[in-house]
Amino acid sequence: MSDELRLRIAWALTLSGAVLYFPANTIPVMTISLPGKIEPLTVMGGVMELYRSGLPPVAAIVFLASVAVPALKVLALLWLLSRHGSGVLVRRRISVHAFLVRIGTWAMIDLFLLSILAAVGQLGVLAGVQAEPGALFFGAMILCVLYAAEVYKPHMVWQDLDTYEPA
């Protein structure tokens, strides 16, 4: 795969992620049924729910992993890709990219949580958790961003260094 193709795929995936970010955060990802209430939850709603139920650390982790990190990744990718070939801030870009790859999988924590909840939390009339269309968007967004970071290889950053090393 040529670097050019990689660059193009990275762009496409990043843009897709950016587009999917909005439905992923506005459409409910799951519905929790408890006696007396049926509650559709968005990702952010889930964070609020966790916070309200007295688990601020967990809420913080989920918030970071599911809301902040994807947004950050999309923004970081956009920044990386827009700076591609310019030769500026190469070291910074490499460290950002390394960070992106490392943190990438954390964003799946929400889906992981949802899949466990939906599988385990089926207690008949007492409680139930159901995945909603939002989860699909969310998963797609995560995948897009993940692969965008993966496809954009680090050497494509430091090639810039070869090309534009000041004489």
């Binding site: 193009r8 795929i9 496409a12 995936l13 843009l15 897709s16 439905p23 797609a140 897009c144």
Partner: peptide, 13 residues
Amino acid sequence: WVWFFPALALAVS
């Protein structure tokens, strides 16, 4: 063909 992904995402959303 890579632009199919953003287009699809946009369309579905």
